[in-house]
Design a protein around this nucleic acid. Structure first.
Lengths: 185, 185
DNA sequence: ATAAACTTTCAGTAATTTCTGAAAGTTCAG
DNA sequence: CTGAACTTTCAGAAATTACTGAAAGTTTAT
């Protein structure tokens, strides 16, 4: 399956970026290849296209499945498995976000919660705990918010985005319209 | 400078998470150490506390400064440099976000813009371009949004968060109240 | 049950990233 | 200007991570 120059460029780039996005080069390349191809691809085709070993391909596919961004696709009459994206771009992006949250934020949140529970054994510890508390709250806000955005779906996110700096205004608006519902923490 | 168990635990954790957050273990540890200590720390103190070489410490500090999350602090009468966090937790978190955006999203956005500009040389290429376009738009939305949140500041983010699923409702509300300002794309 | 067609696993190797420590560089007091 | 106190740099060593390819495993047709 010879790749068009366009696809090649994109695939190589996603490979380079891969490690920054939480997976390694080959996984990034495999992912891009699958997403940009309309036809389902077999593992062998992928290995050939990227010039990587069959074994490595297998591991990469496994990883992408654990991220839930690709899924198997069975072609009637064919013996081998084929792979396709697990959904729309929006869905894929969400899955990546979600998975990264699990790996990058959740463990920290858990630890911080624990550390904050212990009663401080000194003045110094108390200061530290306060700071940890602040970090905890911030991470929790961010987490809750990214969840929220995911639930909104792409169209509403778009509306919200077009609102731009208007978000602040909307907030004020909301205070006028739905009073008494804030500050219950 | 012996670390309390509380600080030790937190520092070690931030070290382990470091690589997931875009920097390496020692950089993560140094960062946590500086943030959790009220007193400014010297490079030597940091190296001792973490049992790492002085050279490595120097590199770590340099990196953290490039992220703009720590800054130098001069103690009158002292010859050496001390280091302190570059701002509040909120500011630090923003800087990390910002920096990651630069490394993880901006390069891709640039590439995608370029790839989309070329006129498609085949039906197949056109399909690919459309998909790249979709990815581009999504990344741009996310970028714009995270900018927006950063500008809001922590208090408003908090309000917004408490709104939770209410955001969707507010959006609808807004459509009724301020019509004609949407769908201009 | 056998064999062909395919996939996964994993030990060893290759590539990459991080760390050390010695040497070179800087700054400042005397 | 000199040297003490400090910092940075960078070549090589150590640690970590990714990749290969052969062997073991699985599935299905006959």
């Amino acid at each position: 399956m010879n790749m068009s120059p366009l696809i090649t460029t994109a695939v190589m780039h996603f490979g380079e970026m891969g490690s920054r996005w939480g997976f390694n080069r080959t996984v990034g390349q495999i992912f891009a290849l699958i997403v940009l191809n309309d036809e389902p691809l077999s593992a062998q085709e992928i290995a050939d296209a990227l010039s990587i070993s069959r074994g490595n391909t297998s591991m990469g596919l496994k990883e992408l499945q654990s991220w839930q961004v690709i899924k198997q696709h069975h072609v009637p009459g064919e013996r081998k498995e084929f792979f396709v994206p697990a959904g729309s771009i929006w869905v894929l992006a969400n899955r990546v976000f979600e998975e990264r949250r699990k790996r990058e934020i959740d463990p920290t949140l858990t630890l911080l919660r624990d550390l904050i529970l212990d009663s401080p054994s000194s003045k110094q510890e108390q200061v530290v705990q306060e700071r940890l508390h602040e970090i905890h709250d911030l991470l929790e806000s961010v987490t809750a918010w990214s969840q929220e955005l995911q639930n909104l779906g792409p169209e509403k996110l778009d509306t919200l985005m077009k609102l731009g700096a208007g978000v602040g205004r909307i907030l004020e608006l909301k205070d006028k319209l739905l009073p008494g519902k804030s500050q219950e923490k």
